[in-house]
């Protein structure tokens, strides 16, 4: 059975067996939870479908969050994406998906926490984009979620996936790293390349603070989901090109933990610093909750 303490050990195990990380993890989880593989696959497939439904619902023009602070930006992005945008419509559609799911979350819609609700747009923005716009089979996308989950388990074990504990690097940073690794596997990269993609994505978001306005999962969380998608693509592209992370992935995760531990409390989901305490941040909080 796997222990999910280190990504290198997952890579080694996959290489030894000559399989992908997702195949390794699915087999292991089947043993650990005493559940047949096809049942676990179907459960993950259900999660993928919830992500697709959230994208559909989230691009609604009239969507509004409970606080009234956000909503409708995914629609704007979708309209803009039709014209292509600077990076082409594949990328702008990916951003649309990430914003749609995050906005739907803020509007009390049904989403898959991946790894958290605050970072729930990043995996849909990446994995669904490869599946739907690059015509990859659904099975490939479902398996990619197992890979993403495996990387997330190690990050949760060695560092954290909670903004309150590690800042936004632990939420959107982890999600981007999970997505980067998953996309590399979907694109035919080796387990080792997946590990480099994960490392590069975390390195590029190291130190990101969690400073939500009024403590709500809206500003800046929604846009940081779009940012996480961009980061995941950059990391996956580098890894697929054969670029390696100079610092090994497990050491990068340990660094993320150390950075999170030394981050002041005010910047860890308490809404007592950063964007939350800007004059506008304070004014918005007063408007929502009263002075």
């Amino acid at each position: 059975m796997l222990e999910y303490h280190s990504i290198q050990s997952l890579v080694d195990a996959a290489q030894e067996k000559g399989c992908t990380i997702s195949e390794l993890v699915l087999a292991d989880q089947s043993v650990q939870t005493e559940t047949p593989k096809d049942e676990l696959f179907r459960k993950m497939q259900d999660n993928l479908h919830v992500m697709q439904e959230a994208v559909q619902a989230g691009v609604d023009k009239d969507l509004k969050s409970t606080s009234g602070l956000t909503g409708g930006d995914a629609y704007k992005m979708q309209q803009y994406a039709q014209g292509g945008g600077l990076c082409g419509s594949f990328f702008t559609q990916a951003l649309t998906r990430a914003i749609a799911v995050s906005e739907y979350n803020a509007a009390m819609g049904k989403i898959v926490a991946a790894p958290t609700a605050g970072s729930c747009g990043i995996l849909p923005g990446t994995i669904l984009s490869l599946m739907e716009d690059r015509d990859m089979p659904e099975e490939t996308a479902v398996m990619a979620l197992f890979t993403a989950g495996a990387f997330g388990m190690v990050i949760a074990d060695r560092a954290s996936i909670a903004g309150a504990q590690g800042g936004c690097q632990a939420e959107c940073g982890s999600a981007a790293a999970m997505a980067a690794a998953a996309m590399v596997e979907m694109s035919g990269g080796t387990p080792e390349m997946c590990a480099h993609a994960c490392a590069i994505a975390i390195k590029n978001q190291l130190g990101l603070v969690c400073d939500p306005i009024a403590g709500l999962v809206e500003v800046p969380c929604i846009k940081r989901n779009a940012g996480g998608v961009a980061c995941a693509f950059a990391a996956a592209e580098m890894a697929l090109a054969g670029i390696k992370s100079v610092i090994p992935v497990d050491e990068v995760i340990d660094a993320m933990r150390e950075v999170g531990d030394s981050m002041p409390c005010a910047l860890k989901e308490t809404a007592q610093g950063g964007l939350a305490t800007t004059p506008t941040g304070i004014r918005l909080k007063e408007e929502i909750f009263g002075a």
Partner: peptide, 21 residues
């Protein structure tokens, strides 16, 4: 820890701790 602790739960937003929990 299980893979569905990371890819999941399926939940109504916006916050896993303030809403789902």
């Amino acid at each position: 820890m299980q893979v569905f602790d990371i890819i999941g739960p399926v939940m109504i937003g916006p916050s896993s701790s303030h809403t789902a929990g």
